[in-house]
Amino acid sequence: MLTFVARRLLHAIPILLGVSMLVFGLVQMIPGNPIDLLLPPEAPPELIAQMTAAYGFDKPLHIQYFSWLGRTLQGDLGYSIFTGAPVARELMSALGNTFVLAVPAALLGFALGVGLGALAAFHQGTWIDKAASAFAITGVSLPHYWFAIVLVVIFSVTLNWLPAQGMGFEGLPGSFAEARSLVLPVVTLSLIPMGVVARVVRATVLEVLNQEFVATLRAKGLIDREVLLHVLKNAAPAALAVMGLQFGYLLGGSILVETVFNWPGSGNLLNLAIFRRDVPVMQATIVVLAFFFVLVNLLVDIAQAAIDPRIRR
């Protein structure tokens, strides 16, 4: 198991390097030049040249890449071209705000998804199955910015129970009252993971239930709860794979949901950086998000191997 973990960690290095190259290359391909946006059109050519040199945009691409990579590896993400603030600070704050939504949304979505999926599979073909599956499909198909607005209309405007938008706190919520602003965005964001996980869990549990060993479990005289434990553990690796991906998407933030709830998360930050051609912010955001994506999938790989010994090789 330990060698498996070590090998997966080593595998992550070339993946991250590849990601960094891809990110750097793609950002370079974006049309438009940050210096043009920063300086007025009538700026003298000397000033443009001076600014270009200051940001290192005059050097050959591979030199730019390696110096950027070197600085990034040392934790120096540079300064925003637009605001002049350190990228690291903006990014930490935005990612933190997204985390505060993503973690509870993932927990809620995964718990509901596993519950609905298992329920549907164990009652295959009955109205319970149909109701649970319909609920899951609805969750994936609803445009969630629309659902967010409906939630706001019901719970904020009509009932006045929950805040319509804004975080109302910094970092982590300090009290129950502050946490109320989390409810609507978290519920909205949990819909897609819930639906996707429910579909996969239902299919996987059905597959497991058709395996011969389930007959053995019943022939052993185990009670339903014990049989369920066996089935879920067998279904877990497939479900975890999907959960890892879904959590990765949540970390990227949802620009639509963040806009509806005026939430300063990573989706917001990235969107803003793209419109401003703020190259350092874009590159840093994408690379850090990609890093988390790789990290989450690494953890999923390890968890799968811990659950299913046949994966450890």
């Binding site: 395996q211 011969e212 060993f213 053995t216 479990l217 553990k233 067998n234 010994p309 046949r310």
Partner: peptide, 14 residues
């Protein structure tokens, strides 16, 4: 009960 195929009759992850 004893089953035909012991590979599939045991739960692979326990």
């Amino acid at each position: 009960m004893i089953f035909q195929e012991p590979m599939t009759a045991f739960d692979p992850v326990f």
